[in-house]
Computed example of a mutant assay.
Amino acid sequence: MRAVPKLETRSTMTRMETKAYNAGVRAALDMARTAAITIETGEGSDELPKRGAAAALYSFADAAKALLIDPRLDPISGHEGEP
Rank of each mutant, 00 (worst) to 15 (best):
M1G: 15
R2E: 11
R2N: 07
A3F: 10
A3Y: 05
V4W: 06
P5I: 05
P5N: 02
L7M: 11
E8M: 10
T9Q: 10
S11Y: 10
S11C: 14
T12N: 07
T12I: 13
M13P: 03
T14L: 03
R15N: 06
M16P: 01
T18A: 03
K19W: 04
K19D: 01
Y21A: 08
Y21P: 01
N22F: 11
N22A: 11
A23W: 05
G24W: 04
R26T: 06
A27K: 11
A27N: 11
A28H: 03
A28N: 07
L29G: 03
L29E: 12
L29D: 04
D30K: 14
D30M: 07
A32D: 01
R33Q: 11
R33C: 04
R33L: 13
R33H: 12
R33G: 03
T34M: 14
A35N: 11
A35C: 13
A35Y: 13
I37T: 15
I37Q: 14
T38Q: 10
T38C: 10
T38A: 15
I39W: 00
I39R: 00
E40K: 03
T41V: 05
G42E: 06
E43W: 11
E43M: 09
E43H: 07
G44W: 12
G44Q: 03
E47P: 01
L48C: 00
P49K: 01
K50Y: 14
K50W: 12
K50I: 01
R51Y: 03
G52K: 11
G52R: 14
G52T: 03
A53E: 07
A53W: 10
A53C: 09
A53G: 09
A54M: 07
A55G: 06
L57P: 00
Y58R: 14
S59Y: 09
S59G: 12
F60Y: 15
F60K: 02
F60T: 02
A61T: 06
D62P: 00
D62G: 08
D62T: 00
D62R: 03
A63F: 05
A64R: 07
K65W: 09
L67M: 11
L67S: 12
L67A: 14
L67D: 10
L67T: 06
L67C: 07
L68D: 00
I69M: 04
I69Q: 01
I69S: 01
D70S: 07
D70K: 05
P71N: 10
R72P: 00
L73P: 01
D74W: 05
P75L: 08
I76S: 09
I76E: 12
I76A: 13
S77W: 02
G78K: 00
G78P: 05
G78A: 08
H79I: 04
H79A: 15
E80I: 15
G81Q: 07
E82P: 13
E82L: 14
P83I: 07
P83H: 04
P83N: 02
